[in-house]
Design a protein around this nucleic acid. Structure first.
Length: 595
RNA sequence: GAUUCCGUAGCUCAGCUGGAUAGAGCAACUGCCUUCUAAGCAGUAGGUCAAGAGUUCGAAUCUCUUCGGGAUCACCA
């Protein structure tokens, strides 16, 4: 059922037969809506071969295709554009073909490639904010898209649960916490720990100021402030396995995990496996020996180990300090190698912001130089920062948008809007709550995912996220209207029995467009998978919903007098509903049955 | 300074493997609910695709330069 492929093959044949030339590849594109036709071939590139005028060349190819392909009903030529009209029977055939078939096939092929998608990867010293939300939604959605596109997907989280930042929270809690717990304070665990991180920073700043008064430079002040020295000591104790420090660490981390769990649940994301840096941070040192032996890595006079990437246009990168301790890069090398050994993958995708573009460029290059074959399958899913009207979010300046707060506000707004419109009537309290959640979270997710991941995006807290226009609630609304139609039609209709041919259905232009849209579902999914871009899906499902909305407005469905047409339109609606639900599912967005 | 990403309507974004007259949504203004859910539909207005040059039959799309913005350039993570 791939008409483009058939056309391309025949066109290559036509070029050979007409002009004796061999062309590798031809591409058909959608016909511009202002012209008659469904698919268009641009013939300018073939003029060298045909040695004829554009119009003449297009006409000759058009004639060839029309006589050799039954589905080509007609064609017209405008300048160098050959517009083909595909016969309605093809689209009806396709409609029949997808009838009752799911848009997303959840059975995987035996030889499906294994793709590991790492995302989220939070620090355990503070709660998640809007930047993390983009990361999580993006990682989850890309994983779902890759799964739907036929990959065996493993979602992993690498929790940064150790290091100086956690020690800061721990130290502040020890000093000023008075034994406060999530239970005693009624605070969510991650927020409680975050509170002490802020507390640390506040006092630390005061100390820095003090030190500077005593004549220290900025850099010296930052290093010599007593709090920082204490935090460093605590980190050393942690590394030495000090019992007291470890116990505190475990307790506070457990608070954070409980908090994260709630946030993840609200966001609707999940993981197949969670790694902890406390288990992986020592990894990588053995790789260094191997790299030295291979001559890829070099040792400096002070005993530090580095790799020279200047031939590749990058810098020298240190991998082991003079004292033998490792750096972030070392750990990432080790983690990657461990994963490749544990779970051989065809691709490993790191969902990390574009501020780390350089880091991943270097990481991948080093792994390649060390000779790991799987290094070719590494990919940095680099996404742009979320910015506020006043610029980048800065936790220290208190301009972060908290993830939990934001989600709560979204659901509350959804509730208020729904009530205002009276759309909650007839629902039980539980159903209404579920609906507010579905709409509010849908609006948030769609707002974030519709933007090309690579681009930075702007979030203005002052203007609440819209529920009209190009939004999830609009798409959900169209799904709901379809469900309402199906409910009204009742159980008595046997949709699967409609034979569009024996019933002699004449397609309305909009119906044909809608079927073509459905036909494009799979190609869109593939494109989204290749580009790692949920935005491709978001744009597609919006267009589908929009066209359906127009169709619904202009065309009687249940009110149609001819029973055959009622059946056909209901079934078309039902399939579109399925397509909408499936596409939204790829974005991690649910659809309600009524709203 | 070096590297890198970005600049499309007042705002938020599509379009970018070169194709026909650059599209949506929001905001503004007009119509349309006794007719399958108006979170809707239809319409008006809004553009030097940052600027310039080049390649091409054809450039928002590719190349170069300039301007403007972000990020990175630690023996931090």
């Amino acid at each position: 059922m791939n008409i483009e492929k058939k056309l391309a093959e025949k066109t290559i044949e036509a070029l050979h037969s007409l002009y004796g030339a061999t062309i590798e590849k031809v591409v058909f594109e959608k016909t511009n809506p202002d012209f008659v036709g469904d698919l268009t071939l641009v013939v300018f590139n073939f003029l060298k071969i045909s040695k004829k005028k554009p119009e003449e060349t297009a006409t000759e190819i058009g004639n060839f295709l029309k006589t050799h392909i039954a589905e080509v009903a007609d064609f017209n030529v405008v300048k160098g554009f050959l517009n083909l009209v595909i016969d309605n029977s093809f689209w009806l055939n396709y409609f029949k073909f997808i009838n009752g078939k799911p848009f997303i096939n959840d059975t995987l092929a035996e030889n499906a490639p294994t793709v590991m998608v790492e995302y989220s990867s939070p620090n355990t010293n503070k709660p998640l904010h809007l930047g993390h939300v983009r990361n999580n939604l993006l990682g989850y959605s890309v994983a779902e898209i890759l799964k739907a596109a036929g990959n065996k997907v493993i979602k992993v989280n690498l929790v940064n649960d150790r290091g100086i930042h956690i020690c800061k929270s721990m130290l502040a809690w020890q000093k000023w916490g008075n034994g406060e717990t999530p239970e005693s304070s009624g605070m969510k665990g991650d927020h409680l720990v975050g509170k002490y991180y802020v507390e640390f920073d506040k006092n630390y700043k005061l100390q820095i100021a003090d030190c500077k008064l005593k004549g220290l430079s900025d850099e010296e002040a930052e290093k010599q402030a007593p709090l920082m020295i204490e935090a460093q000591e605590m980190l050393l104790k942690w590394e030495a396995g000090d019992k007291e420090v470890r116990t505190l660490w475990e307790m506070m981390n457990s608070w954070v995990y409980k908090g994260f769990e709630a946030t993840y649940k609200m966001m609707g994301v999940n993981f197949d496996k969670t790694y902890y840096e406390s288990n992986t941070y020592i990894l990588g040192k053995n790789i260094i020996d191997d790299g030295l032996a291979k001559g890829v890595l070099k040792r400096r006079a002070d005993n530090s180990i580095y790799i020279d990437l200047t031939p590749d246009g990058l810098d020298e990168k240190t991998l082991l300090r003079g004292d033998g301790t490792s750096v972030y890069m070392t750990q990432d090398l080790g983690t990657a190698v461990q994963r490749a050994e544990e779970t051989p993958f065809d691709k490993l995708i790191y969902t990390v912001g574009n501020e780390q573009d350089y880091h991943f460029k270097v990481l991948f290059l080093i792994l390649k130089k060390l000779g790991y074959k799987w290094a070719d399958g590494l990919f940095h899913l680099s996404y742009g920062m979320v910015e506020l009207p006043e610029g980048k979010m800065k936790s220290r300046e208190g301009t972060v948008v908290d993830a939990d707060d934001l989600m709560k506000v979204m659901v509350e707004t959804a509730a208020a809007t729904t009530k205002e419109l009276g759309k909650h009537e007839g629902l039980s309290d539980a159903e209404a709550e579920k609906l507010f959640y579905t709409i509010g979270m849908g609006a948030l997710k769609y707002f974030i995912l519709k933007v090309d991941p690579k681009k930075k995006m702007l979030f203005n807290p002052a203007e609440s996220i819209d529920f009209n226009g190009n939004t999830a609630p609009f798409i959900q609304f169209n799904y709901v209207r379809i469900q309402a139609l199906l409910r009204k039609a009742g159980e008595g209709w046997d949709f699967h029995d409609i034979d569009v041919f024996t019933h002699n259905i004449t397609l309305l232009p909009k119906e044909k467009e809608l079927i073509i849209k459905l036909y494009n579902f799979n190609a869109t999914l593939q494109q989204a998978a290749i580009e790692y871009s949920p935005a491709v899906i978001a744009n597609y499902v919006y267009e589908l919903a929009k066209e359906y909305s127009q169709y619904y407005h202009d065309t009687p469905i249940l009110k149609e007098h001819q029973k055959d047409l009622v059946l056909f339109r209901l079934q078309l609606s039902k399939i579109i509903g399925n397509a909408i639900r499936s596409a939204m599912q790829l974005l991690g967005i649910e659809v309600p049955d009524r709203m």
